[in-house]
Amino acid sequence: MSTVLLLIHVMIAMALVGVILLQRSEGGALGIGGGGGGGGAGFMTGRSAGDALTRATAILAACFFATSLTLSILASHNSASGPSIVPTSGGEGGLAPLAVPGESEPAAPAAPVAPSGPQVPQSN
């Protein structure tokens, strides 16, 4: 189910990119039918082509939004039952201490070590 929805989502995204690229940046449309001034000379006038592209963009954007929400809901339902790479129990921060071979219990954390850099004499 999620694979089919993901493929539909990708096709909607590609169609949305194509429709957006067809539009002019001035707010008009591409003028697909030619003859923008003639009263019915072309298939679509410039204004009707712009309205169609604007409507197609809005519809594709709504479909993209709906498939995005649906995919995120499906992913959250599937992740609750699936395995995770992040450990959920253990030591501090979710990490379990390492076990040393031959010992029955893991070793305790070592005490902090003082820095071993060059010592600077302090003047009074």
Rank of each mutant, 00 (worst) to 15 (best):
L5T: 12
L6D: 15
L7Y: 13
I8F: 11
I8H: 15
M11K: 05
I12R: 00
A13H: 10
A13P: 14
M14C: 08
A15V: 04
V17A: 15
G18L: 01
V19G: 09
I20F: 08
I20M: 15
L22M: 07
R24W: 12
S25F: 07
E26I: 06
G35Q: 05
G39L: 10
G40Y: 00
M44I: 12
T45K: 00
R47M: 15
S48C: 10
A49I: 08
A49K: 04
A52L: 11
A52D: 01
A56I: 14
T57K: 11
F65G: 05
F65S: 03
T67S: 13
S68P: 07
L69A: 14
L69N: 05
L71I: 09
L71V: 09
S72V: 06
S76A: 08
S76M: 07
N78M: 08
S84I: 01
I85V: 03
V86E: 09
T88D: 02
S89M: 07
E92Q: 04
G93Q: 02
G94W: 00
L98T: 00
V100C: 10
P101Q: 06
G102S: 12
G102F: 14
S104L: 04
E105A: 10
A107V: 04
A108Y: 06
P109Y: 11
V113R: 01
A114Q: 13
S116P: 01
P118S: 04
V120L: 05
Q122I: 05
S123E: 11
